[in-house]
Design a protein around this nucleic acid. Sequence first.
DNA 1: TTGTATGCGTTATCAG
DNA 2: CTGATAACGCATACAA
Lengths: 351, 351
Amino acid sequence: MKFEAVTIKDIAKALGLSTSTVSRALRDSYEISPETKKLVLEYAEKNNYHPNPIALSLKERRSRSIGVIVCEIANSFFSQTINGIESIAYNSGYNVIISQSRESADREMLNLQYLTSRSVDGLIVSVSAETKDFAYFKELNQRGMPIVFFDRIVDDIQTHKVIVDNYKGAYEATTHLINSGYKRIANLSNASVLSIAKERLAGYKAALSDNGLPVDEGMIRYCLHGGMIVEEVEEAIRGLFEQAPAPDAILTSADKLTTNCFRILRAKGLKVPDDIGLIGFSNSDMTELLDPPLSVIRQPAFEMGEVATSMLLQLIESKRPVTDFETRILQTELIIRGSSRQAGRRKKEMV
Amino acid sequence: MKFEAVTIKDIAKALGLSTSTVSRALRDSYEISPETKKLVLEYAEKNNYHPNPIALSLKERRSRSIGVIVCEIANSFFSQTINGIESIAYNSGYNVIISQSRESADREMLNLQYLTSRSVDGLIVSVSAETKDFAYFKELNQRGMPIVFFDRIVDDIQTHKVIVDNYKGAYEATTHLINSGYKRIANLSNASVLSIAKERLAGYKAALSDNGLPVDEGMIRYCLHGGMIVEEVEEAIRGLFEQAPAPDAILTSADKLTTNCFRILRAKGLKVPDDIGLIGFSNSDMTELLDPPLSVIRQPAFEMGEVATSMLLQLIESKRPVTDFETRILQTELIIRGSSRQAGRRKKEMV
DNA sequence: TTGTATGCGTTATCAG
DNA sequence: CTGATAACGCATACAA
């Protein structure tokens, strides 16, 4: 016994009409008599008929659904973005198909092929850290598949993009650490190929230079999995502390990097911010409850999802090819928590 | 310019063959000559042909994809479950379509209709707190759609289910609070219609009774949105503290309930566990880092996802109708953090 | 106002 | 070994 839905054909047979008449009646076509319409509509209602979207997709070559590819949904930033995406899509009658790459290029490709062949009308993508070959994205884009990149964008693909001002976010956070009296600030960075990692790193370096502090490559560590694997963060931090002199503060450039770095510092018995400074990118709603409360750089994730979706729908629904692509840059928010007093004290101690 | 994929027809035309020959060559049929096969396969490879799953679904009435409905993916428990679901589905060549109900019955119904009409081969569902009418689920199930419920199950629908021993989880946690010296333990519960809420509430009450403590309905508050909305938790806690005597400990029966309760108690200046006891269901990976570290009841979310998916695939792939349905019950884990010493001290003080 | 025929991409069933 | 045809569910151009 397999699930069978009622089709137009069923209605037609039951009512002694042709499928086209039924089809038109259901679409409330002007060329159908009121009586027939009523008959069909009532029967359809009673047997709760729903048009088969698969058949519709096959016919219309569109599915009113959009595909989303992120590396990991169990990540505050991405799940908040997805909420933003869904809120817009839902209101526009689009369905959202979510898939995770888990930072694997293979898996990303598989999801990509699934989604495209599945006739999604467009894609919203934050690329995986492992992806080196963007040829398939490019081809897709050139062949007319609407794509919007967000967060981790691909520079040389011409399409709409949504990012935050990563440079500024990292710059401000680093500056705050410097103003709090820290002199040797390390950077835990994401995979160096990622656009966001580059931008954040640049902001970090600029802040050091602008404040007369040296940029020491030994103070910079890259975590290929963005901190998702605790061991890689441990390894990076160990490397940092093997340097002489050791860092007195750390800027973490990814969500999981921030929380896992915090976890490890705490396990080492280091108190933030008295023993060591720490600020990182994080969208977790629990950083304020940590022991001690953590200062973070927060991204407007929900809004990014909304903006990306609006852009995508615009691409999907525009008749003529779009040529003037836009990169929307939103602002991060630097949230300082409970560390100013201690940082002040620290500053005095150091004088 | 619209995205166009290469089809069997394209290949046939280009190679001067018929579509059926190409189709068979691609499926490596024995009745096609090696030369033709080679020709077709190479051409397909070069132009990176991929069969159109939409057309396949239409024909085969199956899609090799499964639908998942949860209330919220930005919830540790559910995102961990989804990871478990994907890990099994991925290995079996199934795709996963995730959708959120946001605790809205309307939205759940919409997603449900979308997924079923979209020819998902089966469903994995944790029902929304708002849903009162399960007729559509029942109908779907009776008409042969494989469904596995997990976490928030529907009792009177005959199908496979995956849950944890909620009764025992709540019982053990409550008992631990009692043994730590708390005498007036409140319960922040989820919407009372939910299976999990009922079971956890029963475990809580039983633990009180078994230890000679009275069950006071005034100490029980229901949050219809499971704590997702901070205000409802604030309201509930305010209500609790208006009682006389006020509670000296709280058992929270949902993920967001736990973290938001913690947040509010902290804002009120109440220290856990010295001023007030707190244990709750939570799968967040950050509870150990909270200020102070929080004791929690943890569910094997990933494993639940794996089990649910295995069960579903079994249903999907079994030829004959299944009649002996199974309810798999996994065990929760009570994680006690840093409170034993203080609880001990507290106990002594109270003597 | 209603019915017939066609095609979307694929495969199964016949024919050749 | 290969080709033509029908069917999956739907919408629509064309006939009547």
